[in-house]
């Protein structure tokens, strides 16, 4: 018993020590910006930006090859944070409009369960052949479920106005757009 515990502990310590040394001597100088940006991204790897996952997107952002508005799930807050981090002007036009969340229309939902499999944050609940629902707090509005819904019962809708989300309307032009 004691021999087992001690030997396995020693083995773990020895291997950890070797790996620690290796990490020091084989360290690769990577762009620190890349890692910082990766921390800021949602990390759900939904692929809407066109890059293979948040890692690829962070790399493109760090190299200045992608716009700060590339991430729909991140929303306007992420755009502003990225713009501040990278020192570029946030193109507010691209991220205009209120954040959208998925919503299931119960009248047309057939319970096919396709949407739940696509959801990167497991925000859609409901067993097969049962009406599905969206957990609003978990939904990031990525729109992947809308693509697979065969009856178009899933829609992206603006967040309902509550005390927390209400804000002053934007100044509108008096002579139309």
């Amino acid at each position: 018993m004691i021999a087992a515990v001690v030997s396995l502990t020693l083995l773990g310590i020895a291997l950890g020590w070797v790996l620690g040394l290796a990490a020091r001597y084989l360290r690769v100088e990577s762009n620190p910006l890349h890692e910082e940006i990766q921390q800021m991204l949602p990390g759900v790897n939904c692929g809407q930006c066109g890059y293979p996952g948040c890692n690829g997107a962070a790399e493109a952002l760090a190299d200045g090859k992608a716009a700060v508005t590339l991430c729909p799930p991140g929303g306007p807050t992420l755009v502003q944070a990225l713009a501040a981090k990278l020192g570029v002007a946030a193109d507010s036009a691209a991220s205009n409009g209120p954040p959208l969340l998925a919503h299931v229309n119960e009248a047309t939902c057939i319970g096919c369960a396709h949407c739940g499999k696509r959801c990167p944050t497991d925000a859609i609940i409901g067993a097969p052949k049962q009406i599905h629902g969206v957990i609003q707090d978990a939904c990031i509005g990525c729109g992947l479920c809308v693509e697979v819904c065969p009856t178009e019962c899933l829609q992206l809708r603006p967040i309902a106005s509550t005390l927390k989300t209400w804000h002053w309307p934007k100044p509108a032009l008096s002579f139309g757009v």
Binding site: L11, G12, L15, G16, V18, L19, A22, L26
Partner: peptide
Amino acid sequence: LVIAALVQFTEMF
């Protein structure tokens, strides 16, 4: 444990 550590090392290398 040994295999995992070796692979980690290989990945770094």
